[in-house]
């Protein structure tokens, strides 16, 4: 491509693409939308290990909610954890259990996991209305924005906007807190990227710009900055290389 991809050249757009563009993001296509791949500057992966905030809002995710949802997903070979826990799936997808029958499945950092698509297709292929309960699709890709806060200062930054004790020794990997973050109802899940502390953050997509500003503000004293998906991938790759 000769001209760089701009968010407006595709129909699907991140809820905060203007903020990202204003911060100098370089975009890459994925899931029919532009995602902030990099913000440039010195070693972005190191920034992500220190304190980074990434927007994964355009990334693929599906939800299933309502009577029978958890059982149906289990019947699809999905690992369903306890309520308020998340669990990695065989292909790297991540399942977040938000209630007895309220579940969300996201693709992975590298967007290679196809489980969300497979589940959406499997549900749609079934009879409608259903003969037996299997939950209903939830438009989590649209209703939630998806941010990832990474790095050694992530817990300290969260402590400025969230009243739940999220410090790594008190909030284990795989735990979910559904709580208030900067006065916004939110899902906070600890799903580290390799050995780097990472909180997966989901909240009202209409409030995404507000939320992004609040979190960046809270990050400032620790030298935090926005990072792109390439930095996240590097953090993931570097560690797995070591392993």
């Amino acid at each position: 491509m000769n001209t760089p991809l701009t968010p407006q050249s595709l129909a699907r757009r991140s809820f905060l693409y203007r903020k990202l563009a204003g911060l100098g993001a370089r975009f890459a296509a994925g899931n029919e939308a532009a995602i902030a791949a990099s913000f440039g500057g010195a070693d972005e992966a190191a920034a992500a290990r220190n304190l980074g905030l990434a927007d994964l809002s355009p990334r693929r995710r599906v939800g299933f909610k309502g009577p029978g949802a958890a059982d149906w997903l289990a019947s699809q070979g999905v690992t369903v954890p306890e309520i308020n826990r998340c669990a990695a799936q065989a292909d790297g997808a991540m399942l977040f259990r938000l209630g007895a029958n309220d579940l969300m499945i996201t693709t992975d950092i590298g967007a290679t996991a196809a489980l969300p698509d497979r589940l959406a297709a499997a549900w749609a292929a079934l009879e409608n209305p259903p003969q037996s309960p299997r939950g209903f699709p939830m438009p989590r890709q649209e209703g939630f924005c998806w941010l990832v806060l990474t790095g050694q200062h992530a817990a300290a930054a969260m402590a400025k906007i969230c009243g739940v004790d999220l410090r790594p020794h008190r909030f284990a990997a795989g735990e979910i807190a559904q709580t208030s973050v900067a006065r916004l109802s939110a899902v906070v899940a600890r799903a580290d990227i390799s050995d780097t502390l990472a909180y997966q953050l989901f909240a009202d997509s209409a409030s995404a710009e507000y939320w992004w500003d609040c979190i960046l503000d809270a990050m400032q004293e620790f030298g935090g900055r926005p990072v792109g998906t390439e930095a996240l991938a590097a953090v993931q790759g570097a560690a797995s290389g070591r392993a």
Binding site: I83, N84, G99, G163, V164, A177, Q178, T179, S180
Partner: peptide
């Protein structure tokens, strides 16, 4: 369902 939280929640 969610455990102990500040009453403001």
């Amino acid at each position: 369902m969610n455990g102990p939280r500040n009453i403001s929640e």
